[in-house]
Design a protein around this nucleic acid. Structure first.
Length: 648
RNA sequence: GCCGCAGUAGCUCAGUGGUAGAGCGCACCCUUGGUAAGGGUGAGGUCGGGAGUUCAAUCCUCCCCUGCGGCACCA
């Protein structure tokens, strides 16, 4: 029999007969390793203990101590065990796919009746039964015809389709535990009993399209989470509770920031507190834009369809536009308008006023542009995904030769803004030319190179999204990571060769002739609504002092202090601090609790002592101890804290 | 848009085929209390909208709206 050589992680090699399995290799090393082993990595591939190795390879044997591999097996086996549990409980339910996802797994089923929360409990119980059976897991490779026939015989049409999708030359692998069988690329545990029975939980059931396509049948997806230990599961559930406490919809209510109601779905009613955040952020962005050479404009909300037809939005974007029919009393015919979903066409119209010289380029035109888009109802989510929003939008009209420098300048501005707003790190994604595109390859070459060079020059690395660019040009996307590890794509810069052409924007160059400018669409926050939502969740409502909606509440302890409370409040307001007096007939405990829940960063308590000494007792949010200081010192200190970071 | 679930007082929620309840909040009164909920009294609801079944619907059925969780979407 042929021999192969396997190299171990410590660098040593040993010979084995070809076709040896990791299980046999482990047994050859020690009995205890054979018992503990769960899988192997063979030449970089996560390998089942029972798959034969037929060529020279590197090998590492894994035990439950190897995080990544253990979790993959646990979650993958959980998905299969869940599918088996479902089919045992409800024979006839059709199975589809069940992959591992972050923190867990899911499996999609085709079943007429919806699964209920009670069903999830029953499935969990059945899964524990299956785990306790400790059924050995076995695997075989089948040929395609046999697999197809098998799934036709067992009335599993989705599996038939999956078998058909497996590329030629890739093994069609079947797995069994007990009598239950599934098509699966593996690897899996050796027995169902290796799955920790107390460290998984089925979380929810939701609809999902077969193969992710909205034209295909809607399946029922059951999501679960799974870990190695009961404690890990508990920690995860605690984390979910913490995330829920940060939910901007909940904090928006608790902090009295905004509300939404069914008469205006997807649109925000900003309350005074929330609007304080909004204006503080907008004032800040306006200063940044001025400092970075932008001019600010403002353009109409309701615009005749002729402009949208010219820009191409009418054809490509109409289903997302709020169309407005204006039936003017004296007009001969109705005019059909749309609320602007984007600002770019209006900005081009401003650019087109008068003749522009090459000397005016690059022209950076910014607008806090209020846009309306008819988003699908299922997409709406608090203030994060809305139908009415305001972008920190700008368009840079320039020449091809400007793209690189403008991109570099933009990335610098964006990184300074993110840093000021509490996000030190961000990721850059670069999307290059899609299949369907406008413009010559030559122009795309130049634009893509310019974006890459500018990103390099600014000192950032990017990940490539091949073919994900817009049809009108390549784009950069900037992704923030929040305090609990979630990614948010906020900033973007897109090169556009098409719109200036469609709307016939031109400038006069050195040669005295008209030339087309290139447009760079760019945003840093994205929309104020969404970004404020992100800020709220990132800081769990405890915004940096300069952005806090109410920065200070001055609370009286006894009513004899009321006059001094109002004096302190007035002094703080005069110093530019958002301060409020609380002289209600309530105990200080009550006031402290209420304003703490409301995430007010500084609470001043004023009693008889403070009145007599002209001091204040300062309590910072989240701290138990208090500090007594004199009024002037406090005002000076808080004035500095209230100053936005760019003005310090 | 699709699948599922939900909608009862400002908020969180309980409840019933015979037109409703709690806690918090709110108003008023007592209380002037020293750093996360002092006490009392009271007001407050077309039970999301419409249609149907029924002697009778907040409750059962259907349609619609909105929200929630996913999916799809985010050019």
């Amino acid at each position: 029999m042929a021999e192969i050589s396997l190299t171990f992680p410590d660098g040593t090699s040993r010979s084995f007969p070809a076709g040896v399995t990791p299980a046999e290799v482990a047994a050859g090393i020690s009995g205890s390793l054979a018992k503990k082993a769960i899988s192997a990595t063979v030449s970089g591939t996560h390998w089942d203990m029972q798959w034969p190795i037929t060529a020279n390879a590197s090998i590492a044997i894994h035990t439950m101590k190897d995080d990544a591999q253990a979790l993959e097996l646990i979650r993958h086996d959980c998905a299969h065990i869940m599918a088996r549990a479902v089919q045992e409980l409800w024979p006839g339910v059709k199975v589809t796919i069940g992959p591992v996802i972050e923190n867990g797994f899911y499996y999609d089923f085709d079943r007429e009746e919806p699964f209920t929360p009670e069903d999830l409990g029953a499935i969990e119980a059945k899964m524990r039964e299956i785990i306790n059976l400790r059924d050995p897991v076995t695997t075989e490779i089948w040929d395609r015809a046999r697999a197809v026939r098998h799934y036709e015989d067992t009335n599993e049409p989705y599996k038939v389709e999956l078998v058909g999708m497996i590329p030629e030359g890739q093994p069609i692998r079947m797995y069994w535990h007990g009598d239950w069988q599934d098509l699966c690329r593996g690897p899996h545990f050796q027995t169902t009993g290796q799955v920790p029975a107390d460290a998984f939980k089925l979380m929810k059931v939701a609809g999902a399209y077969w193969r992710g396509e909205s034209s295909r049948p809607m399946l029922q997806r059951i999501y679960g989470v799974a870990f190695r230990t009961r404690q890990d599961l508990k920690d995860h559930l605690t984390f979910l509770e913490e995330a829920e406490k940060r939910d901007h919809r909940r904090l928006g209510r608790e902090m009295d920031l905004f509300h939404m109601q069914e008469e205006a779905p997807g649109q925000v009613f900003w309350h005074p507190n929330g609007w304080n955040i909004y204006t503080a952020l907008q004032d800040y962005m306006r200063r940044q834009q001025n400092r970075n050479g932008y001019v600010e404009v403002n353009t109409p909300q309701v615009v005749d369809r002729r402009l949208w037809e010219a820009s191409g939005h009418w054809e490509k974007y109409q289903e997302h536009m709020f169309v407005v029919e204006v039936d003017e009393e004296h007009a001969r015919e109705k005019s059909i308008n749309a609320l602007k979903p984007m600002n770019c066409p209006c900005h081009v119209e401003i650019f087109k006023q008068g003749l522009k010289s090459y000397r005016e380029l690059p022209l950076r035109m910014a607008e806090f542009g209020a846009c309306n888009r008819y988003e699908p109802s299922g997409a709406l989510h608090g203030i994060m995904r809305v139908r009415g929003f305001t972008q920190d939008d700008a368009h840079i009209f320039c020449r091809e030769a400007h793209i690189e420098e403008e991109t570099r300048r933009f990335i610098e501005m964006l990184s300074a803004v993110y840093r000021d707003l509490g996000f030190e790190e961000f990721k850059v994604k670069f999307s290059d030319r899609p299949e369907m595109r406008a413009g010559s390859d030559n122009v795309w070459d130049k634009a893509e190179t310019a974006l890459k060079n500018a990103t390099d020059a600014a000192g950032y690395t990017y990940t490539l999204n091949p073919g994900e660019g817009a049809f009108y040009g390549p784009k950069l996307e900037f992704v923030l990571t929040d305090a609990i590890g979630r990614d948010w794509q906020c900033g973007t810069l897109q090169v556009d060769f098409v719109l200036p052409e469609r709307l016939e924007a031109a400038y006069i160059a050195e040669d005295g002739a008209k030339h087309r400018p290139v447009m760079l669409h760019r945003a840093i926050l994205g929309s104020f609504e969404r970004f404020i939502g992100i800020l709220i969740e990132n800081f769990a409502g405890r915004l940096p002092f300069w952005l806090a909606p109410r920065q200070v509440v001055v609370a009286s302890i006894v009513s004899d202090a009321d006059a001094y409370v109002h004096e302190v409040t007035a002094a703080l307001k005069a110093a530019g601090v958002r301060a409020e007096a609380d002289t209600r007939n309530e105990k200080i405990n009550y006031k402290v609790r209420e304003h703490s829940v409301g995430k007010v960063p500084v609470i001043l308590a004023i009693g008889q002592k403070e009145v007599e000494n002209r001091t204040v007792s300062v309590r910072r949010l989240g701290q138990k101890q208090t500090e007594v200081m004199d009024l002037d010192t406090l005002v000076t200190g808080l004035r500095a804290e209230a100053t936005p970071p760019d003005l310090r």
